[in-house]
Design a binder for these strands. Structure first.
Lengths: 218, 218, 218, 218
DNA sequence: AAGTAACCGAGACGGTACGTCGCGTCTTACG
DNA sequence: CGTAAGACGCGACGTACCGTCTCGGTTACTT
């Protein structure tokens, strides 16, 4: 999983074809493109190594040389178009940041091709602990850190209470969105995500004051 | 999907054996049991029709006669042991109900065998819209209705504001739990779920009053 | 093989249907008819117990109750229409008897439905010694005896030499016909079979005299 | 049927191993050998693609890649060991040639493993016109041509009448042998085949002279 | 007239083998 | 040395029939 060895990123236009100078960039892109297309056209089960190879005009061995499985290829497919697509913003106010980000997240998950890939990967991760780990380490953790930074900026600005557990706060924010997308299939339009932000901010505001509803006595 | 036709339904010791009167109850249970065991022991990929058949001492054709796929079998596996396992309680107070339920939900998803099946099904549903639909219609909707009733009781008692959108409220409650389980893999122990309930109640309380933090002007 | 128990042959029109008095004649005929049709329409491989049962509107068990296999059914099929179809004639002269019989045999094997069944059975008998034995004992031996009697009559009339080995003579007569039908697929029209008879008779005639060509000295 | 594409043809140690240059010769031989063994040990019904694959240590797909059915494999099995096994001799005299050849043929059909394969193929050909055609075109016709040449040499030497229909003559010669082997199961030892030759030669001799028995008047 | 027993249809069952698909590994020839 | 090509052993797929079984219904001989 995730054993994809990227080619010489910095080295400029390395672009060979059946030679001794490193992997073929053409082949790499053809594979990723083919995998993406197949996922969108035929769904996860329709993505096979043989299918990718045939569609990309590439030998199976070439795929196995650089990736470990079809999930690995999809993973690169995902990284290719999605890495910077989900950028927690920095607009200056919590409300603005959060509403913007949740709208962006919802749209990404439901409308973007890369979002479809992510859903497929998260789905597959339920069957495959190794993939789950790779997925988190290679992507979700970075994203999460950027999301946490967004919250941290709000704390710095005094918009969120200092003692807030940012991890849990984040789950309370994005959790409902993921839940609708992955589990209920319910709508996640801007009105919905905006209200999620409202509720989140209301809870945070209340947490900074004496709780108006006394805790459970039992 | 979900094309399993149950036999003698409600009552009566209907216990046939492969004749014109319907399917063999023995075979049905052996299949479901085998699928469950295989999922727990070897994971989703380790569940195969051939494997189930061999383990259950049943012919493949018998499985194909009554179920459409391994997912279908797992679905019945899930219904078998989980239908009543997740019962939103009615303890008399919101806080008590919600903390109890979220603890129960988290434990189910992370510790119970049926929870493992549910995670697998939700994962597979990401690749299979038909399964997603069946899963919701056959199970998740009922559960959700019971969950909504739990919230509704709290509204009736005046513990939650009357104008609350219960659907969104529910997503804000259980969403963070599912998110941790399905996406981040973070912990969902009682302390965590209790704090989720705290935050939820705080937000609801605030919603019933003039908001102490003014909404974003932009 | 050949375990078909025929019903009370002599007892008149025994014709019941789901009772305790013996097998259903309707079912028996429907089965035989279905098997015959299937053989002609779809060939030997297209004859299956399930297919016969479905086509005859009969339960599989009914077939297994009275026959042992599809070959057994075909066997009855064959006996039904072919037992008396191949009757070595008694016209008074060898030449007449033999030409008539060989023409009849060739036509039966190549044109008659029952001939198709016989070819199928002989074919199957190559794979199945048990069937081969049954086939000979139940049918071919009787036929052969009638054929031998035909030759014996000719010997009695002095038309064939007294010392003739009738078994070998018969093989020299019908063997070429079977060979063409079963092996080469060559034509076996009346002109051909008539010439076979000519040659046979010529050899027999020569055997009654001093051989004009001296035997090999080596 | 007979769609087996042979590799390196005539000569040269072409010995590849499952690459772009053609099929694996090892696999081909293992398959043929396994099929042969299974036929001899368990009969035609005991020959299955799965059985062959297992015994040969070969994947089913490899068999299906190069052959179309078990009959196809048996066909190659047969060609492998039998092509030159039946060689009509050229000893200089008809009697010598024919007695030798008929003995050889009878022994081949009744004792040789390849003979068993041929019997199975001829049997199967009764159910399968395609196989019948292939069998004739791929093997029997060549053999027949060699047999006809043997007779033709005798005609050239003046040992057989010039006007003889060689095709029919051949059927009269080998037909009785095939008949015994395929139909009656009667013995075909040297004494028997020698007498078949005697009769054949007697008929031919008589055909060259005024017939001592006048033809039928009716 | 009721009971009973043999045969019927239907069809589910545990199996074997089918022919296909995709896996991941391999060997080669080319550039 | 990386590539396209593709054969290989392997495992699982979903299907077709096999031969066995249990069932409820029908019918005609008991009693």
């Amino acid at each position: 999983m995730g054993e994809s060895q990227l080619p010489g990123d910095a080295a400029g236009p390395v672009r060979h074809h059946g030679n001794r100078h490193g992997r073929s960039e053409d082949a790499r892109r053809a594979v990723i493109r083919a995998a993406d297309d197949l996922l969108v056209e035929r769904g996860f089960a329709g993505v096979t190594i043989e299918g990718i190879a045939a569609r990309a005009g590439v030998a199976k061995q070439t795929i196995y040389r650089w990736w470990g499985s079809k999930v690995d290829v999809l993973f690169d497919t995902f990284l290719e178009d999605a890495t910077e697509q989900l950028a927690p913003p920095d607009n200056g106010t919590v409300r603005s940041d959060l509403t913007a980000y949740l709208r962006q997240l919802a749209a990404f998950l439901t409308e973007d091709d890369a979002g479809a890939v992510l859903r497929a990967l998260v789905g597959q991760a339920q069957h495959d602990p190794g993939l789950a780990r790779t997925l988190r380490e290679s992507h979700l953790d970075q994203l999460r850190n950027r999301e946490l930074a967004m919250l941290d900026r709000a704390v710095g600005r005094g918009e969120l209470p200092a003692g807030l557990d940012l991890d849990e706060a984040l789950d309370r924010l994005v959790g409902p969105v993921y839940h609708r997308v992955l589990v209920t299939g319910g709508p996640v339009g801007p009105e919905v995500t905006d209200r999620f932000v409202d509720a989140f901010l209301a809870a945070c505001a209340a947490a900074g004051e004496p709780a108006p509803v006394p805790p459970d006595q039992g």
